[in-house]
């Protein structure tokens, strides 16, 4: 198993350079003017990046204020009794709440779990599984919708948060099943 993981992780360092060379190679074979087309496509990079700025500011400011005010900590304290009923460890609640909001925040929480409980503890494993199994929902929604100027997001947030919740709960139960 470990060997297999190693091979996959090693292979990943070749994927990007291979994509960068093989696509133009094939295109050249198909008589595409690769340099001119590359530049043409690259032009869009600037406009898209600039277009997402207001959306990103709106989302990141709200998240930053929420964390700095201590509201996040109160939310954790308030939810603890409910979660203990379903067997959800309170040590992993901050991660479950932080994961959809902030990538760097949840990475910080993961390193906190590692420091407090060690890399082999159940809490670290549950936290790491949560970290690895979902994405930063609010960031993705702000960037993706922002890039095309969509302001009415309909059911996107509910669907994203339901997926995050399902990921967090399955992280708890799978790790408990496998590691205890």
């Amino acid at each position: 198993m470990d060997g297999f993981i190693n091979i996959i992780n090693q292979a990943s360092s070749y994927i990007i350079p291979l994509i960068i060379v093989l696509i133009p190679a094939y295109a050249l074979f198909r008589k595409v003017k690769v340099y001119e087309e590359f530049v043409e496509g690259a032009k869009e990079g600037f406009t898209i990046a600039v277009r997402i700025i207001p959306y990103l500011v709106a989302i990141l400011v709200a998240i930053g204020m929420f964390r700095a005010s201590g509201a996040m900590d109160y939310m954790v304290t308030g939810l603890e009794p409910i979660l203990s009923i379903i067997g959800f460890p309170p040590e992993n609640l901050p991660m479950a709440l932080m994961r959809p909001l902030s990538g760097s925040g949840s990475l910080g929480l993961l390193s906190d779990l590692v420091n407090q409980y060690g890399v082999d503890s159940l809490f670290t494993r549950i936290g790491a599984t949560m970290y690895g199994s979902t994405e930063t929902t609010f960031y993705v929604i702000a960037v993706y919708f922002g890039s095309v100027g969509i302001r009415k997001t309909r059911h996107a947030i509910i669907a994203g948060l339901l997926a995050d919740m399902a990921g967090a709960l399955s992280a708890v139960y799978i790790c408990k099943l496998l590691f205890t």
């Binding site: 994509i19 960068i20 696509i23 133009p24 295109a27 198909r30 595409v32 690769v34 087309e37 590359f38 530049v39 043409e40 496509g41 690259a42 032009k43 869009e44 990079g45 600037f46 898209i48 990046a49 600039v50 997402i52 700025i53 990103l56 500011v57 989302i59 990141l60 400011v61």
Partner: peptide
């Protein structure tokens, strides 16, 4: 937020360039 977006410009340009070549 602005730093993140600005940092994205170069990577975006690189991949969108490769994508354009792949599309053609």
């Amino acid at each position: 937020a602005v730093e993140l977006a600005i940092g994205l410009i170069g990577i975006m340009a690189l991949w969108l360039g490769i994508m354009q070549v792949a599309e053609k």
